[in-house]
Amino acid sequence: MPPAIRVHQVAKRYGDVEALAGVDLEIADGEFFGLLGPNGAGKTTLISALAGLVRPDSGTLEVMGHDVQSDYRNARRMLGVVPQELVFDPFFSVRETLQIQAGYFGIAKSPARENWIDEILENLDLTSKAGANMRTLSGGMKRRVLVAQALVHRPPVIVLDEPTAGVDVELRQTLWQFIRRLNREGNTIVLTTHYLEEAESLCGRIAMLKAGRVVALDSTANLLRRCAGHSLRLRLAGGQPPPVLRERGEEKDGLWSIVFDRYEEIETLLAQLRNAGCTIDELEIGKPDLEDVFVSVMQGRLGAARP
């Protein structure tokens, strides 16, 4: 079984900008994969190269073992892409848009096709808008149609480039429910998003891109573990901070935070504070989240890529 996506040494320049600087990536069949990175990191460029919208300067890309250039017909059939830009064809209604998109993939009109379109519309809460012209939809609804268009040919690999930008909470939940279901049913999902808590809860594995390079690649759990660890955050009732705080902690607006690796350490820390005669006003234990990991990776504080 070939990987769902294989990216080998892909580079792409736009004038002086190195959008992709030799990216290697393999995403297994059935994964829920996150592609993260700051604005301009190269996420969309990588997705475009995968979809054949952009020709890389060098390197190769495959979808389910099909090269996106030499075997583009099969590669594209296997791939559903939700583009980042909110685009639509103002000449058609929602249903026409989906029927035409299915037709482009060589799927003739049939009860099976119409049922699937109905099912997608239902799951994306678009049924009541099926006959509406694309022009008359709100931004969030247009985004849903983009998702629907990517799914209409039942691709085994689905790539979503910031599908939740500008989408309300309710739809975000419906969308993730649907995408999770598709993932459970065996589809490979690749997601880019700037909402890191979204990526943290959905993605099993994450790649972080910075200036066209993969700077971190690991399972979400490992990434979270590799980060600075837990932190004890506390506020003192008054008096001088004891030496242990000044050595190990960081202060911000009177809130001290001390990083530790194992929960047992808390006991010693608290004992040291008690011995120094401190009164604690407020205390909480912070778990690392993906945002911490992201920030440390982007600042170059955390591990190099492990492809």
Partner: peptide, 8 residues
């Protein structure tokens, strides 16, 4: 893009 993504 809708025309460029499919296998045409």
């Amino acid at each position: 893009v809708f025309v460029l993504l499919p296998p045409i």
